[in-house]
Design a protein around this nucleic acid. Structure first.
Lengths: 335, 335
DNA sequence: TATTTTTGTTTAAACGATTAAGCGAATGGT
DNA sequence: ACCATTCGCTTAATCGTTTAAACAAAAATA
């Protein structure tokens, strides 16, 4: 096992102090160091294959150039795409990203945050989970830089970048109305998470504006970890009502994929018998005979802005930035 | 800005040395410490909200409990699923994962590895990229613990966990033959990466065994970063030959998705006119009218084994472990 | 009672870097 | 020729832990 080369090793080899080696390799004190020494030090560093120990540096400088990304699940395409853009954006500024999946469980979420803080991350980008308000408040109290993405809590005064979910759902529902749907339903998650409740509210508001009553019964909620059967039941329920739905809005792409798999087995034509719209892009739905109309979340933009805000905050800009991004209704075949 | 609490702060508050505080909080020297002191120290730690600074600890112990995961692209579902399992597995052993995407570029790959090493990761899990052999050899020379997943180089003597790609492609091709295809083609990546060349070889070997000549012309290669149009062209080419293909094997799920999108626009019925098989599971293809038959890579297993081998190696087990995993042909509607 | 052992704790060095302050020697100004 | 700069480099403290070694006081042994 070759021992790792330290500044001291270089210093000994060249016959100078570690301080000088550090100055040279970090290009500090430019001009105040003799060509001769600088050359010899750089040469030795190269020959000895020196690599700086960031742990030691971090301890001294109190900076790790690492940011923690806490999401619900990295294997969910929505989050992995988000993660990728954040990774790229961070890399431009020489930051590394460490990722953790909370599975929407507040305990796991807090544990991840704690682990990341123990590792002295410079800041956090967080897709919060229901029940994590106290954890977030602690971050604020301790003045830890962080930015919420996708999900946020109106009661928590913090940086965030999120979709205007109310407006998005409102627009989508209006679209269903405008193409002639009379009995519009929605399948979404049962959760008090603000971004999800906003979607419900937007849906209901659009219906109300069009004189539709009796809405609640057409809003089916499934659990956050809903599997195929639960979604099927919800859809089946809406389709077998006295006045079956002829238009459906899905609260997430995961729900949409499950629902469409089921709908695909039914003797129904989309969009003639049933129009469909979902949140979020997903190419899982591209091969369905009627590619789904969806609300596009500008992921690139969200990720980029979140990263920018965080890095800005890390560099001591203390003002709070809250960004509401508009979704875009991408109209395809299903509605 | 509240200053962070250190061992020293606790020591001062309680009126003992930092050493004692460290011993108590780490449960070292059990029994050799008075109940009294232990209680007071733990109490103070709780009250002051002490959290250990892992950076400082790492510097001293030379252990970061961090592993680096280098893959081609975290936004690719194959890798994000892999990453998730590795994350979970690592967490059980108290390790954190830092992830980097190489985009199949050797320079980026090496830069990532270097960054991770500078951060003193305890080990690496690597999905290698063509042209990174020298980088890997350096790791071996420096005795850095690492495991290759998915891709490996036969010439490099290192831990790996990978699919037996030859056999998988062979089996898939034989299946196409057995269901009556006479002109079987393959669309895969143009790359000298061992796992990809093995897929080609398996495909050709199966054809040869069945007396088929003139194979090469039915093997179309697209670039690693192929977009829709390139895949379309390859498929179109195979379909417009003198003897059009009636069976197709796709070298990856990404290619398959792109190809099926195109095929879906053609006046062809799958599998009657054209049978299809692809590598890797992907629910993107579930909603196609003929869900694709595919070669399942046991991702769970691969990720779990890779992590186990790495952690074992980190704990100083120096023997090399190479695992070839068998794929499983999941037969659905397309072939 | 004198000596050894045990107990509970402290001292201090170390990990590998950064960086303010200091310090001779060479250079410059007058 | 004298004092002030400038130059090139070193000294040494520091970041927050860990941990071997030392140590004083109490307990056990003789």
């Amino acid at each position: 096992m070759k021992k790792k080369v330290s500044l001291k090793d270089i210093a000994n080899r060249v016959g100078v102090s570690t301080a000088l080696v550090s100055y040279v390799l970090n290009n500090k004190k430019e001009g105040r160091i003799s060509e001769e020494s600088a050359r010899k030090i750089r040469e030795a560093a190269r020959e000895m294959n020196y690599r700086t120990n960031q742990i030691a540096r971090s301890l001294k400088t109190n900076k790790t150039f690492t940011i923690g990304l806490v999401i619900a699940d990295i294997s969910n395409p929505f989050f992995s795409r988000l993660a990728r853009i954040i990774e790229d954006e961070a890399e431009l500024k020489n930051y590394t990203v460490i990722i953790g999946s909370s599975d929407e469980k507040p305990e796991k979420f807090c544990k991840l945050v704690d682990t990341f803080l123990d590792k002295q991350v410079d800041g956090l980008i967080i897709a919060a989970t229901d029940g994590t308000e106290s954890c977030l408040n602690e971050l604020i109290e301790n003045n830890i830089p962080f930015v919420l993405v996708d999900r946020y809590f109106p009661a928590i005064h913090a940086n965030y970048v999120a979709l205007d979910n109310f407006k998005a759902a409102f627009t989508a529902t209006q679209h269903l109305i405008s193409i002639g749907c009379n009995n519009i339903g929605m399948v979404t998650y049962e959760s008090p998470l603000f971004n999800l409740t906003e979607r419900k509210k937007g849906f209901l508001a659009a219906l109300k504006e069009n004189g539709n009553r009796n809405n609640r019964s057409r809003l089916k909620e499934v659990s956050l970890k809903a599997r195929q059967d639960e979604v099927e039941k919800a859809v089946a329920n809406l389709l077998s009502a006295a006045q079956p739905v002829d238009g459906l809005l899905f609260g997430s792409n995961t729900i949409a994929v499950q629902a469409v798999k089921y709908i695909n087995t039914l003797p129904l034509r989309v969009p003639k018998d049933l129009a469909l719209i979902c949140f979020d892009e997903t190419d899982s739905l591209d091969l369905f005979y009627a590619p789904l109309t969806y609300i596009r979340q500008p992921l690139e933009d969200m990720a980029r802005q979140a990263t920018a805000i965080l890095l800005d905050r890390i560099d001591k800009n203390n003002k709070i930035t809250q960004v509401n991004i508009e979704g875009e209704l991408i109209i395809r075949k299903s509605a």
